[in-house]
């Protein structure tokens, strides 16, 4: 039985299982806990955004799901298949698009895909058909015969990077920052491709720190920080639960001291000074936020270093939950 056949057999046996099921996953490197007891379930057919800053534990989590790294404890299943017990079956149903452009620039697009397809046990006409299909999905048919992908544009390379993960027709696809550094045309092409794949039943986990992309693509969202999933649910539900307006002010020390004294007189306002010294106020109603900042600007700090008023969004949810902006944004 080929790997592809094994994979299909695996799918048939796990139609009712969750696409992804993590339970109490812990992983430490040199006494630093990268994943700290994460439990997370992704249903089949979902399009979920996994949000988190660099160092939050996303890559380690993906590595554990992909079978590259073994967790210290906990259990991980893909379509009901235990990763630790049957790693090759999991590899047959799981596709991973790495953040790196993991393709060979010396080879052509077709040569790259034929090689990666062969790694999944695909042969002969089936391999040729899968390569042609993957190239069509990412809009690179006209580039297939070019001698070397090293001369492709950044967007074309990104699309080929995705195509290489589609050859074995995975049931679950994890994409790690798939749109870093590309042009809007390629980004839109990738979005359309992913929507099409999802509409065909593929479960997609979209890992990013571009919140707008999650808002544009995903139905559900999970936010990870310090190795834990700190919030998850439908996009609307998360916004309803945590969607607050935010005012972010960077003030001089004396001004900040006076502003804090003023805020103490308004018990209905939630505020904090973040790690990077920003005074952050959150309110449920945007008008309240505007009134507060007006008062501070008028009475205390007419010329603050920075002043931001943010309406409810995933970004304000993230900031509200973690106290920090996504660190690379």
């Amino acid at each position: 039985m080929t790997t592809a056949q094994e994979a299909m057999a695996g799918c048939a046996a796990s139609e009712s299982a969750a696409a992804l099921e993590l339970s109490g996953i812990v992983k430490s490197f040199d006494h630093v806990r990268a994943v700290d007891g994460t439990s997370w379930t992704v249903q089949q057919g979902d399009f979920v955004g996994l949000l988190g800053p660099n160092g939050a534990g996303k890559t380690t989590l993906i590595s554990i799901i992909a079978g590259l790294v073994k967790g210290d404890s906990g259990q991980a299943r893909v379509l009901g298949i235990d990763i630790a017990e049957e790693p090759n079956r999991v590899k047959g149903v799981l596709g991973v698009v790495p953040q790196d452009l993991a393709i060979y620039p010396e080879l052509g697009a077709r040569e790259n895909l034929q090689f990666f397809g062969a790694m999944y046990g695909l042969r002969g006409q089936e391999l040729k058909d899968r390569v042609a299909d993957a190239l069509r999905r990412v809009g690179l048919e006209d580039r297939a015969a070019r001698p070397a992908v090293g001369k492709f544009s950044g967007g074309q390379k990104r699309r080929l990077n995705i195509a290489a993960a589609l050859l074995h027709r995975p049931q679950v696809l994890i994409l790690d920052e798939p749109t870093v550094g590309i042009d809007p045309q390629s980004r839109n092409y990738i979005f359309d491709t992913l929507r099409e794949l999802n509409s065909e039943g593929m479960t997609i986990v979209y890992v990013t720190h571009y919140m707008q992309e999650v808002e544009a693509l995903c139905r559900t969202v999970a936010i990870v920080d310090h190795g834990r999933i700190i919030e998850e649910g439908s996009l609307d539900g998360v916004l309803a639960r945590h969607g607050t307006s935010l005012v972010r002010l960077t003030l001089h020390a004396e001004e900040q001291r006076r502003a804090l004294a003023l805020l103490e007189k308004h018990p209905g306002v939630t505020y904090r000074v973040t790690d990077d010294g920003v005074l952050q106020l959150s309110t449920r109603v945007l008008q309240d936020a505007v009134d507060l900042v007006t008062t501070i600007l008028k009475d205390i700090a007419p010329n603050p270093e920075t002043c931001q008023i943010l309406p409810p969004s995933l970004e304000t949810v993230f900031i509200g939950l973690t106290g920090n902006q996504l660190r690379d944004v």
């Binding site: 079978g67 590259l68 590899k91 991973v96 790495p98 953040q99 452009l101 990666f116 790694m119």
Partner: peptide, 13 residues
């Protein structure tokens, strides 16, 4: 360094 070794490790080889 390219990440292709990682990609190979993710595949069933």
């Amino acid at each position: 360094e390219r990440g292709t070794l990682r990609r190979l490790l993710i595949s069933p080889v």
